[in-house]
């Protein structure tokens, strides 16, 4: 039985889903103990019901208007104050742009360990967290050996489960001073061209693309997916696209979540630049093409037929999802 505190986050006036996931983790760790949540900013009260539904027995509100936007100094002081009040044994939050920014500073103040970016937790005699290392090429299990346990949980990994609790609210007064960074403005993400080395999704073309013109359907697919276009050396050498798009031994090394290889035979030099991609899709006319050996999914066919169909299909699926979650 543990006493656990979860820092819940909001974004665009809504509770973040990751906070509900973290509450679910908190339930597992509490193991019959106490699940506390805290939420910062002037409209924290609004989220009482939702937090309670996912297991928060007590909810601590720190309502200072300075906390409507995240700053390391403001949130640090608020969280330290809540921790002082609640005296939790475990502090959890999402591995988000707030969580991973804030908790290291709080950990220093509490002389505590912090286990970051956890994707799983086992609760027995000890609390053992699992986290990916080397960009997911390996995993480690880690435990805190000394002091308060702090961890950040990777979003979209653990399913949030409803677990209705009382959700009694408590207001905490925090005196916030010396906020040394100021958020002047927040500019919403605009969709623009995605840089190849940053792209989560890459649509790459090879010799099979046949011309500069041939890259158009690839770009359209990339645009729909919010990804970037890349190319094999053969395509660059043939002058179909700019050398800056080259992926491979003498070009860029990329590790996107999804790599769609179109008309790429899969020369070993190209694989050196992309084989660590999480999921590889190969589209090639030649069923013997080497790329199929490393692909997770393959379609044997003409890329000029397959790619436009794929673009349409994604558009369709995205449009349907909009309706459901809208």
């Amino acid at each position: 039985m543990k006493k656990v505190l979860v820092l819940a986050e909001t974004k665009n006036g809504k509770l973040r889903n990751v906070s509900l996931e973290v509450l679910t983790v908190a339930g597992k760790i509490a193991n019959g103990g106490e699940i506390n949540a805290c939420i910062f900013g002037s409209d924290g009260e609004k989220f009482r019901e939702e937090l309670a539904k996912f297991g928060a027995q007590k909810i601590y509100l720190v309502e200072n208007a300075e906390l409507n936007r995240y700053t390391p100094d403001g949130f640090k002081q608020a969280l330290l104050k809540v921790i002082e009040e609640v005296q939790p044994e475990v502090v959890l939050t999402g591995h988000t742009s707030v969580g991973k920014d804030l908790l290291p500073r709080v950990a220093v103040r509490l002389n505590a360990a912090l286990i970051s970016d956890c994707i799983d937790v086992e609760v027995g005699e000890k609390i053992i967290f699992t986290r990916p290392i080397y960009s997911g090429k390996a995993f480690q299990k880690k435990e805190v050996t000394n002091g308060i346990v702090m961890a950040t949980i990777r979003p979209n990994n653990i399913e949030a489960k409803e677990n209705q609790a009382a959700g009694e609210t408590f207001k905490i007064l925090a005196e916030l001073k010396d906020l040394r960074t100021m958020v002047k403005d927040i500019v919403k993400k605009t969709s623009g061209k995605v840089d190849l080395s940053e792209a989560k999704i890459i649509v790459a073309g090879g010799r099979g693309v046949k011309s500069a013109e041939g890259f158009k359907p690839l770009q359209e697919l990339a645009d729909v997916l919010g990804g970037a276009v890349g190319a094999s050396r053969a395509a660059c050498d043939a002058g179909y696209c700019d050398y800056s798009l080259q992926i491979g031994q003498t070009g860029k090394v990329v590790t996107p979540d999804l790599y769609i290889a179109c008309g790429i035979s899969g020369a070993i030099q190209h694989l050196a630049g992309m084989s660590s991609s999480k999921v590889i899709v190969a589209i090639n006319k030649d069923p013997e093409a080497n790329i199929f050996h490393i692909a997770d999914y393959g379609i044997v066919g003409d890329l000029f037929e397959v790619v436009p169909l794929l673009t349409e299909e994604f558009k369709k699926v995205f449009a349907e999802n909009q309706v459901v979650t809208g």
């Binding site: 899969g266 020369a267 070993i268 030099q269 694989l271 080497n290 050996h293």
Partner: peptide, 10 residues
């Protein structure tokens, strides 16, 4: 044993 051109050729 590997892929076309994966040895000294590549």
């Amino acid at each position: 044993k590997n892929a076309i051109g994966s040895g000294a050729t590549g």
